[in-house]
Design a binder for these strands. Structure first.
Length: 213
DNA sequence: GTCTAGGGCA
DNA sequence: TGCCCTAGAC
């Protein structure tokens, strides 16, 4: 591996269980509202969705994201991981495609080629195995970020598997993932895709407030 | 064996 | 774009 680059990747893992907001926790139908809140376009930062600093929030069927044009990647990706989303089907790895829903144009995957970095999923393909459509959707360039292979297939991968375990255990959770995009970051490719130094995940369990860390 | 990936080649 | 092989971490 090329050691000329400054490797200081650290994962910051934030696991937050929330007790509050009883007014939408207690009723079953409210779950529905939350779920729809993710998908309905035009809704402002409904419920758990964070605010966007770029003003460009895009909703896909399987997840929502806020795209940061400067760094050519999403500042966050949010999705719900339901128990029934968990599946073991194995889809063929599709081709990475440019996310056409990004108005300012998402980066091309060629930026990542031979950059030494992985095209790391923010919304993991492994969390969207309940349908091929949802699975393939994670292979949009708006859903990936440059990650070291060692990091992506190592501790990050482990974390994603734990997320799946928790989704099973707590009957569904919300997941928010992103890289820390600020300041001057190293870039790759012609479009200068920023390379985050840190990645984070925030988990929200809406019907069982067991805080975990 | 299961996940995450890169890369070569028709 | 599909197919198939390789590699690391757990």
């Amino acid at each position: 591996m090329n050691r000329n680059k400054n490797y200081t990747l650290i994962a910051i893992i934030l696991l937050i269980g929330v007790y509050g907001y009883n007014f939408w926790l207690e009723k079953e139908e409210d779950k529905k509202v939350v779920y729809e809140g993710i998908k309905i376009k035009g809704d402002t930062n409904v419920f758990f969705l964070p605010s966007s600093t770029t003003g460009q929030v895009v909703h896909h069927d399987g997840y929502s994201l806020s795209y940061n044009e400067k760094y050519e990647q999403a500042e966050w990706v949010a999705y719900e991981l339901k128990k029934e989303h968990l599946a073991n089907r194995n889809f063929k790895r599709p081709y990475f495609e440019i996310d056409k829903t990004i108005k300012t144009k998402a980066a091309h995957w060629k930026n990542y080629k031979q950059s030494g970095y992985d095209k790391g999923h923010l919304c993991p393909a492994g969390d969207r195995k309940y349908s091929k459509q949802a699975h393939d959707e994670t292979f949009l360039t708006s859903n990936i970020s440059p990650q070291l292979h060692e990091f992506n297939s190592g501790i990050w991968n482990t974390l994603e598997q734990k997320v799946r375990y928790w989704a099973e255990k707590y009957d569904g959770i919300y997941v928010l993932t992103g890289g820390v995009l600020n300041g001057e970051l190293p870039t790759i490719g012609e479009e200068q895709v920023g390379v985050p130094n840190y990645f984070y995940k925030v988990l929200l369990d809406y019907n069982n407030g067991n805080p975990k860390a």
